[in-house]
Design a binder for these strands. Sequence first.
DNA 1: GGCATTCTTGGTAGCGCTACCATTCCAGCC
DNA 2: GGCTGGAATGGTAGCGCTACCAAGAATGCC
Lengths: 353, 353
Amino acid sequence: MLEWPGAWAKALIKPRSRRGGGRPTLSDVARKAGVGAITVSRALREPERVSEELRRQILAAIEELGYVPDPNARALASARAEVFGVLVPSLTNNVFAEVVRGIYDSLSDSPFRIQLGNTHYSGLEEERLLQVFGSQRPAALIVAGIDQTPTSRKLLENAGCPVVQVMETGPDPVDMMVGFSHLEGGRTATQHLIEAGYRRIGFIGARMDPRSQRRLAGYRLAMEKAGLLDPRLITTTPVPSSVPLGRELFRDALAKMPTLDGVFCNNDDIALGILFECHRASIDVPKTIGIVGFNDLDMMQVAFPSITSIRTHRYEIGRRAVAMALAAISGDRPEQRVVDLGFELKRRESTAR
Amino acid sequence: MLEWPGAWAKALIKPRSRRGGGRPTLSDVARKAGVGAITVSRALREPERVSEELRRQILAAIEELGYVPDPNARALASARAEVFGVLVPSLTNNVFAEVVRGIYDSLSDSPFRIQLGNTHYSGLEEERLLQVFGSQRPAALIVAGIDQTPTSRKLLENAGCPVVQVMETGPDPVDMMVGFSHLEGGRTATQHLIEAGYRRIGFIGARMDPRSQRRLAGYRLAMEKAGLLDPRLITTTPVPSSVPLGRELFRDALAKMPTLDGVFCNNDDIALGILFECHRASIDVPKTIGIVGFNDLDMMQVAFPSITSIRTHRYEIGRRAVAMALAAISGDRPEQRVVDLGFELKRRESTAR
DNA sequence: GGCATTCTTGGTAGCGCTACCATTCCAGCC
DNA sequence: GGCTGGAATGGTAGCGCTACCAAGAATGCC
C-alpha cells in the first residue's frame, strides 16, 4: 500500500513542517535578497567583506522579514557561543550585584549574552557550574575570587577562552585578574583606627569567605605591628552577613571584651548593625567606640554618625573585566594581566575622635 | 596531481578535524555503549522508555567519557532552549535581587539555565531584550511588572511559552502573574500612620516607577478618605532611589511643609535616609515624625528606632513564578493564573507614638 | 597579452542533537 | 496459527548556521 511513485518523492519535497514557529531563517533572507546564504551570514558578521551594493539589499531583506539570527544555530556551527559566563558567590550581596551590573552595562551593546551563576560560596557548586558553563563553549569566563579548587582551576585553564578572576588580585592568575588587595584594605582600615587613637580594636566578621579572611589577615598584621593583637578581640562566624547579625556579633564581642574601643568590620552591613546597637545602648560613636566598615556602600556617608569605610571600585571591576576579556577575544591580550584597581579609605565621623 | 585513488576517500573518512576541542559527543557515547545514538538521547531525556539494561550501559559510558550534552545542539534540534528568560529593571535594587535569587534557587537543580536581562526601567530596553530573548525560544519568560508597552506585550503573547509577570497583580495577565497589590500596600501603610495619630503625613518617593506610582495612589486614597490630603505633602523625583537621596528629599519636604509629622516612603532606602537625617537634625522619631518604609529589608528591624515597613515576599515571588512556569511547561497550567502573595505591615518603633 | 593576485561570491558539508518514522520483537488474543 | 498492539530500538533527515574550499571577476604587473 502507498506504493504509488509519488509517495516517496513527496516526502522529500516537503521539507517537514517548520518545527519552530516559522520564523524567517537566514536562507529566507538570502532568497529574498537574491544572494547565497553564506553571503548573508557574512554581511552580518564581517560586513566589510561584502560589497556595498549587496549589503544594502541584504539589510533591507532582513528588515522586511524581521529576521533575527538564531544564537543556538550560530553557536553550534561555529563551536563558539556569544556568551560570557559569570560566576559570583551571591546575587543579593550588594558588592557582587554591582560587579554584575558593571558587566551587564559593558556588554549591553555587544552581541554577547551573559550566563550568570550563583555559587552560594561553595567550591563544589562552583565546579558544577563551571562544568555546565563549559559545555556551552563561552566566549569568556568571569569568576569571583582567586581561591578556586584544583578541579575548578583545571576547568578554567582548559576552558579555551579568556578567563578573568575578579574582586581580588593575587600572584598566580589563571589568565587575567582585576581587583584589589583585601589584605591591604584590612591593614589600612586597622591602621587608621590605631592612628586615630583606638587601642582595643576588635575585628568583627560574618561569612568569613577567603576575601574576609584576608581582610582579617591585614587586621592582624596592623595590630601585631602596633603590639595590640589579642585573639579575644576577634569575633567571626560563618553565618551569612546581615545588619541584624552585626548587632548580635557586636554584643558577643562586647561580652567577651567589655573594654573594646574600636571595631573593624568585615563589611558595611555589620558596621551598620553595630552603629544601630550603639545607638540603642547609648554607646557614643566615635568617642567610646570607633567603627570602620568595608566596601563603602553609599549609605555609609549619610549614616549618623557617618561611617568610615574602605571604598572599593566594584562597578569598575566589572567593566574592566569585560574590557580585558573583550580585548583578549579580539586577539590583543592586554600585556598587563593583573590589574589592581586599589581602594580608598573614606575617613568619616565614626572614627573622628 | 593528488589523483591517486585514496585522496578522495581519505577526505571522506577523516570527519574534518573536530571544530570544538574534541569533547565527546552523543554518538561517541552511543558507540561505546554499543547502541544507537537516538537511544542515548532517549536514555537522557525519557529514561523510562529505555530498558534497564541499556540504561545502565549508557550511563556507564557517559560517566567514563565525561560526556556533557551540548545545550546549543539540543536547542537547535528541538527548537526549544532549556532557558528561562528573566527581565528585571535593576540588578542592584535589593528587591529584584531577591526575586532573582528565588528564581535561581528554584532552578538550580533543573536542567534550565537562566538568561537575565536588565531593562534599566526602560520600556524600550525591555522591548529590545524581549526581542533578543525571543530569538532563543526560551522555555519560559519571567518579567517584572505589569506595565509592558504594547509592543512588549505582543512579543510576550507571541513568545510561544509560559509567561509570568511578577511583583504585581493586576486584572489582565499576559499569561500568569505573581505579586501583590502595591496600591493596597500604600494604602495600608498610610492608614497605619493615620491610626497612629499622625496627620500631616508626607509621601516621599524616588524613582517613581509604576509600582511606586501605585503605592502613591494608595497613599492618596487613604489620605483623601481621612480628609488629610494636601498636594504639598507629596515629594517625588524620577532620580534613582538611594539612602543619600532619602535625606535630600526629606529636607525638601520639610522645607515645603515644616509641620510634617509623618512620612510614608516609597521604599526602605528612602526611609533609612530620613531616619539618619532625623538623628542628625535631632528630630525625634516617632514623637515628632513617624516613618514608614516599604519592602522591609532586614535592617529595618534593627535600625534605631526600628522602622515600620510593609513586608513583601520577594524571594517567594521568585520561587512561585518558577513553580507556575514549570507547571505550565509540563502541561498542567495552574487554574489560578493570578497569585496574590500579599504583604504584611510590620509595626515598629518608628510609628509607636 | 598573459599570468599572478586579490576581491567577491557561492556551494557543500557538517556542528551535535532530536523529530519522525520504520523496524523488530514479543505478549496476548480470537 | 495468524494477527493485532505495544514496547524497545534504530535510521534518516534535518534544525539554522558557519568553516572550508572553489570559482569567477576584477585588478595589477611584467
